[in-house]
Design a protein around this nucleic acid. Structure first.
Lengths: 337, 337
DNA sequence: CTGTTAGCGCTTTCAA
DNA sequence: TTGAAAGCGCTAACAG
């Protein structure tokens, strides 16, 4: 490995001069500069960033640590990346494994403090476990559940989104709207917030939410939704609308409906959550709750940069607004129900 | 910041002993060990990985650097991650910006050598530019084009996949199959390989590939495909099949067809490439070329680990096999054409 | 404008 | 089993 002192020797200058040429932090005379660059070129020298980072005490790198970068977090990452770059830092993504054990593992403190800041979304961890994550690096939590007060936290208006989607279908004539992927117990996760919104929409419409319409899922994949909805269609309660906990789940539902020849939106209306790009294109177009990705990203970046700048302002817990995007999977007018 | 020497002082031992306790590399007496751990706990000490890395000359981290982690590369990343973890290293993802300038930027040597190894997929760079990427770190190229011989390279059998998909539709009665996203010029990218396969299938069926059926796209998004196919439907040549250069493009096509009431597969058959998870579920199910993600991942990891182990075996250029997954968007039997 | 010194936090020798 | 010294490659601070 070629080091800076090799270059210095080759150019007949001190290491400091090489460093100055490379970083541009100090004025260096033209001829000296040229000799240094020539030496760099001829030796094929490359700065060692690890060494620079150790010296500087910063890595100029921010991590987005999420359970999966498909779907929602992929979209979020796409918006966060340019904002972080604009601040002169790099964004890297890390995937936490699904299970809580290795999730805690990947949150091992040493790794966290390798970064100037971290966006963290924890799927499997309970609130207490999160609370035990040391605060060595600036951390902004992303995620749809209660979080310890000692972290900044950005979350969506989940209940409101679910309410919007469900109310929309009720307005358009549905009377029995399934909550596909709704939590049955009283966990504090995203699914229970979304389920609460579903229930609230029913009550606002003068209907009593029927617990049998809440269909839990082992995970929020298309496959799980496909299977579960197949079961409901075969021998579950009757329904005429589906609020899917996210768009991926909605695709699984769509497949199950199509297989049985159930027409969308005529017989069953369908709405999802996340407004994935593909949801616009999948016929008949999936009505979906839009998370306002730009706002989520901008808020998260603002909080993290504030923290990285050393602010000790009180932690913020921000809930960002959502909106409903109506498409062909729900009806345009009030139907017969 | 608490350092190891703080812990050593607190525990009344030398730094070396602290290090040994923490890494477990050497035997340490029980009582000493306990005192060290107590000090670590009470001071809230965290190893500084940057320092460790500098000392070790390794970062135990591998990067997957891709233009986008949606779709194809997201799937690849999901398969690569566990394999890398199994080797005791971490996988991080970085996104290259779309444009070649900042792509070259993110490939700046210093960043590359921060990693023990790199999987690199370059979208915007030409072969010559890639050839100029310094070989400081072990690099395995991923991507569907000719690459310099000095790198290991994993690519798909693009031509074969396109041929399979097109031949399948021709067998099932299509006579005029659009190549949606096919390259028009003679660039050496993925799209021209796939277009070549499309043409070959025609010839094998005794048909003459019609260049007017090759529809170029500004980018391989659903939106671009939606627009372009809309144009073709409105005033382009007649067709009865579509080979979409990837599944994302296929979704855009599906939307354009649905808007105009064109029935799939009865009037137009449709096949894509990548076999995304969602393609299984989008009615009527998108026939797609499966890239064999597990094989791609295993091959790439094998090559990189070999390189990271210091091998100077000749560079390998591996083309991994693909297969066709038939679904409802193409016909089950020979139709009337 | 250029060079010298010191040290970021850790671990690999080597010695006790 | 424990410790002291040396140095990974770089740059801030200060001299010259």
């Amino acid at each position: 490995m070629v080091t800076m002192s090799d270059v210095a020797r080759e150019a007949g200058v001190s290491m400091m001069t090489v460093s100055n040429v490379l970083t541009g932090r100090k004025r260096v005379g033209e001829p000296t500069r040229d000799r240094v660059l020539a030496a760099v070129e001829s030796l094929g020298y490359e700065v060692n960033l690890t060494a620079r980072h150790l010296r500087a005490g910063r890595t100029d790198t921010v991590a987005l640590i999420v359970p999966s970068f498909h779907d929602y977090f992929g979209e979020v990452a796409d918006r966060i990346a340019p904002l972080i770059e604009a601040g002169g830092r790099h964004l890297v993504l890390e995937r936490t494994s699904a299970d809580a054990r290795s999730e805690m593992e990947s949150l091992s403190v040493p790794r966290l403090q390798m970064y100037d800041g971290v966006f963290l979304s924890v799927a499997g961890l309970g609130r207490d476990e999160i609370d035990r994550v040391p605060t060595s690096a600036p951390i902004v939590l992303l995620g749809e559940r209660e979080m310890p007060g000692r972290f900044d936290h950005v979350r969506l208006a989940n209940g409101e989104g679910a309410r919007l989607a469900t109310a929309h279908m009720l307005e358009r004539g549905s009377r029995r709207v399934l909550a596909l992927g709704g939590a049955v117990g009283s966990s504090a996760g995203m699914e229970s917030d979304r389920r609460a919104g579903w229930a609230e929409a029913h009550r606002a419409a003068g209907l009593v939410p029927d617990d049998r319409l809440v269909v839990p899922l082992p995970d929020f994949t298309s496959e799980a939704a496909h299977q579960a909805l197949g079961q409901v269609l075969d021998d579950g309660p009757a329904f005429d609308g589906i609020f899917a906990v996210n768009d991926t789940v909605a695709f699984g539902a769509l497949a199950a409906l199509a297989e049985r020849g159930v027409r969308v939106p005529d017989e069953v209306q369908l709405a999802g959550f996340d407004n994935l790009d593909v949801s616009r294109f999948v016929p008949p177009g999936i009505t979906s709750v839009d998370p306002g990705y730009d706002v989520v990203a901008a808020t998260a970046v603002r909080l993290l940069e504030q923290r990285m700048a050393g602010s000790d302002a009180p932690r913020e817990h921000v809930t960002t607004p959502v909106s409903l995007v109506e498409r062909g999977s729900t009806r345009a007018d009030v139907g017969p129900g």
